[in-house]
Amino acid sequence: MILESAVLHVRPGETEAFEAAFRTASAIISSIKGYIQHELHKCIEHPDQYLLLVRWESLEDHTIGFRGSEKYAEWKSLLHHFYDPFPTVEHYEAVSLEE
């Protein structure tokens, strides 16, 4: 499993519209092959900042499957105009803590 993380800086005054658009966009991402789950968290200290966490079966499910799909264009048109600056997206894999 891969964990995608993105810190989203939403333009001031647009958080309500962003959250409404994200509700719509959630149906898009959850329909993609390899998608497992996602969460959106709003920062307490910085109310225009969000943390998006998405779990994927593989890195390619996100980077090729989702980003290469027509549905990504829908996702982009719904959400990308809210960001300033554009978010950095990073991917993580679990570390085994067993010896």
Rank of each mutant, 00 (worst) to 15 (best):
E19D: 11
S26M: 10
Y72C: 07
D84E: 11
T88H: 11
T24C: 06
G65M: 00
Y72I: 06
Q49W: 01
S31T: 09
E4T: 09
P87E: 00
R67F: 00
E4Y: 02
S58E: 05
Y92I: 04
A73W: 01
I28H: 04
E19Y: 03
L97M: 12
Q37P: 08
I28L: 13
R55E: 01
G13P: 12
S26C: 02
Y72A: 09
I32S: 05
I64Y: 06
I28V: 15
A21N: 11
V54G: 02
V54P: 09
M1N: 13
V95D: 00
E39V: 02
I28S: 09
D84A: 07
V7Q: 12
L51R: 10
V10D: 02
M1C: 08
H81Q: 07
L51T: 04
V54F: 01
F66R: 04
E16C: 06
S69W: 04
L59K: 15
K71P: 03
E57S: 04
P12M: 04
H9W: 05
I64L: 09
E70Y: 05
F86K: 15
L51K: 08
Q49N: 13
W56D: 05
L51H: 03
E74A: 09
T24P: 15
A94P: 14
K71M: 01
E19N: 10
A94H: 14
E93F: 08
S26K: 10
S77C: 15
T63S: 11
A73K: 15
G13D: 06
S5Y: 00
A20E: 14
D61S: 14
L40C: 09
K42W: 03
H91K: 04
V7N: 05
F86A: 15
A25K: 07
A94G: 14
A73Y: 07
H46K: 15
H46L: 12
E16D: 08
F82A: 07
A25M: 06
Q37C: 14
K33M: 04
T15I: 04
A25D: 07
I44F: 12
D48C: 13
H46C: 14
K76M: 01
C43E: 09
H38D: 13
S58A: 07
A6I: 01
M1F: 06
Q49K: 14
A17P: 07
I36L: 15
H81K: 13
E57T: 07
K76D: 10
I64Q: 12
S77A: 13
Q37D: 15
E74F: 00
